[in-house]
Computed example of a mutant assay.
Amino acid sequence: MSEQETTHFGFEQVAVDDKARKVAEVFHSVASRYDLMNDLMSCGVHRLWKRFAINLVGVRRGDRVLDLAGGTGDLSVRLARLVGPKGCVVLSDINASMLGEGRRRLLDEGIVGNVAFVQADAERLPFPDNHFDAITIAFGLRNVTRKEAALASMWRVLKPGGRLVVLEFSKPVLPGLAPVYDVYSFRVLPLLGKLVADDAASYRYLAESIRMHPDQDTLKGLLEQAGFEGVEYFNLTGGIVAAHRGYKF
Rank of each mutant, 00 (worst) to 15 (best):
E3D: 14
F52I: 13
G44D: 04
Y205E: 00
Q119F: 10
A201I: 05
P175R: 08
T72M: 09
L206M: 07
V30K: 01
G58C: 00
P85L: 08
K159Y: 06
P172Y: 13
V241F: 03
E208T: 05
A53Q: 02
S42E: 03
V144L: 09
E109H: 14
M1N: 11
V166D: 02
L79S: 10
L79K: 06
R142D: 12
G161K: 13
E168V: 00
V14W: 09
Y34T: 02
V173W: 05
V183T: 08
S170L: 02
L141G: 07
G84S: 07
I54L: 15
A149T: 13
E109Y: 10
E12S: 13
M98F: 08
G239K: 03
V165I: 14
F186V: 01
V65G: 02
A138H: 06
P128G: 02
E168L: 03
D63M: 10
L125F: 12
S153T: 10
A15D: 14
N55F: 00
L151T: 10
Y184D: 05
A116I: 12
V183G: 00
L141P: 00
L106S: 12
S153P: 10
S97C: 04
L68T: 13
L195G: 06
H244D: 04
G230T: 07
S29T: 15
N114C: 03
V241L: 06
N95H: 02
R33G: 08
L75E: 12
R103Y: 08
V241M: 04
W155V: 11
I210Q: 01
D133C: 00
W155P: 02
V196Y: 01
G161A: 08
R245Y: 08
Q216D: 07
L82A: 14
R163W: 03
L99M: 04
R187C: 14
A242P: 02
D74Y: 03
D18C: 11
V57G: 15
F234P: 00
G161S: 04
G100C: 07
D17I: 13
L191T: 12
D35M: 01
R78K: 11
L164W: 06
H213I: 07
A122K: 09
G84I: 01
V118G: 04
I240H: 11
M41G: 05
S170V: 13
G221F: 00
D17Q: 15
D93N: 12
R21D: 14
T6L: 14
Q13N: 11
D182M: 07
A69F: 06
A201V: 13
H131Q: 10
K19I: 05
G62Y: 03
G84E: 07
L91H: 10
G113Y: 06
L195T: 10
S170H: 07
A53L: 03
R187V: 10
R211V: 01
G140R: 09
L222S: 06
R245W: 07
R81E: 12
V115L: 10
F139I: 03
E232V: 14
E208I: 07
E25C: 06
S76T: 15
L151F: 04
G230Y: 01
W49A: 09
F52H: 11
A242F: 03
N38W: 02
Y34A: 08
